[in-house]
């Protein structure tokens, strides 16, 4: 692991229910930068975040976060490491029985012994950062999808983490909400000096704010580099993904038997 890397994956192999998800993934995620991990749906991008967070164990290979080997950590050490991580889930994952204020205050109440008035002020500051100070009394059921993610973002930065992982933050957002999230991710990274890992398949939004990007497909890293480097990457598969071509190395048709057989026609071609 180089000094500049905050997260390092080395030859990570991971299978689930008999299916090989990662087949020797190696990548370095630099400290203090935004790294986008992109790839078609179903390639295991969220699984990669769960491996980094220690919620899943790789079959082989190593994952280090800030110099600590995550698969080898004991339970207590792993939970201590997670206190330095924030994660924004695709659904927001707010606690539905707590108000916006209490959701953001939750990590502080659990992990710190700060006095109530200080928690109050910090929560309001975090909510101010995502533009939702005025929504602190609302319940999660009263929030729109974009607001839910902003509250979840405020909660994930409540303990001032070193690392924040975003799981598909732009999915299902209207253009305004998407613009807000893009700005927030970029601003938080620069103002707090965070290491950010952004998992997404929204190419334009991700490339517009990331410093580095990695494209995963078929269980491997097929392309990595700065956004400018990726735009001229020689791999056809990378270009198909970035340009959104419907056919190419990733075929339009799902593998199937010969068409004439399915249509009940003897002879002919598929």
């Amino acid at each position: 692991m180089s000094l500049r890397s905050y997260i390092s994956l080395k030859d990570v192999v991971f299978s689930r229910t008999g299916r090989r998800i990662f087949d020797g993934v190696t990548m370095d995620i630099p400290r203090g930068k935004i790294t986008a991990i992109m790839g078609p749906s179903g390639t295991g991008k969220t699984t990669l975040l769960r491996l980094i967070g220690g919620q899943l164990q790789p079959d082989s290979g190593d994952i280090t976060v800030n110099g600590q080997s995550v698969p080898k950590l004991r339970r207590k050490e792993l939970y201590a490491l997670r206190e330095k991580m924030g994660m924004l889930f695709q659904s927001g994952a707010l606690f539905t029985d707590l108000s916006v204020f209490e959701n953001v205050a939750f990590p502080m109440r659990v992990h710190t012994k700060l006095p109530e008035d200080m928690i109050h002020d910090i929560v309001l500051m975090k909510l101010e950062a995502v533009g939702l100070r005025g929504a602190r009394q609302l319940m999660p059921s009263e929030l729109s999808g974009g607001m839910t993610r902003r509250v979840a973002l405020a909660r994930s930065i409540a303990l001032d983490p070193e690392l924040i992982m975003y799981d598909e933050p732009f999915t299902g957002q209207d253009p305004i909400a998407m613009g807000v999230l893009v700005k927030l991710i970029s601003d938080l990274n620069s103002s707090m000096g965070l290491t950010s890992v952004l998992v997404s398949h929204d190419v334009q939004e991700s490339l517009s704010i990331c410093h580095y990007a990695c494209i995963i497909a078929d269980g491997k890293v097929i392309g990595a580099g700065t956004p400018a480097e990726l735009q001229v990457h020689p791999s056809e598969q990378v270009q198909q993904f970035l340009q959104g071509h419907p056919d190419g190395p990733v075929p339009f048709h799902y593998p199937s038997s010969v068409a004439t057989e399915d249509f009940g026609l003897a002879g002919g071609v598929s």
């Binding site: 939970y79 201590a80 997670r82 994660m87 889930f89």
Partner: peptide, 18 residues
């Protein structure tokens, strides 16, 4: 289903105990 248990884990809170 709404990832609340996962989010607890990622916050360093054991859902089994909490």
């Amino acid at each position: 289903a709404t990832e609340q248990l996962s989010s607890l884990e990622m916050m360093g809170v054991d859902p089994l105990r909490r």
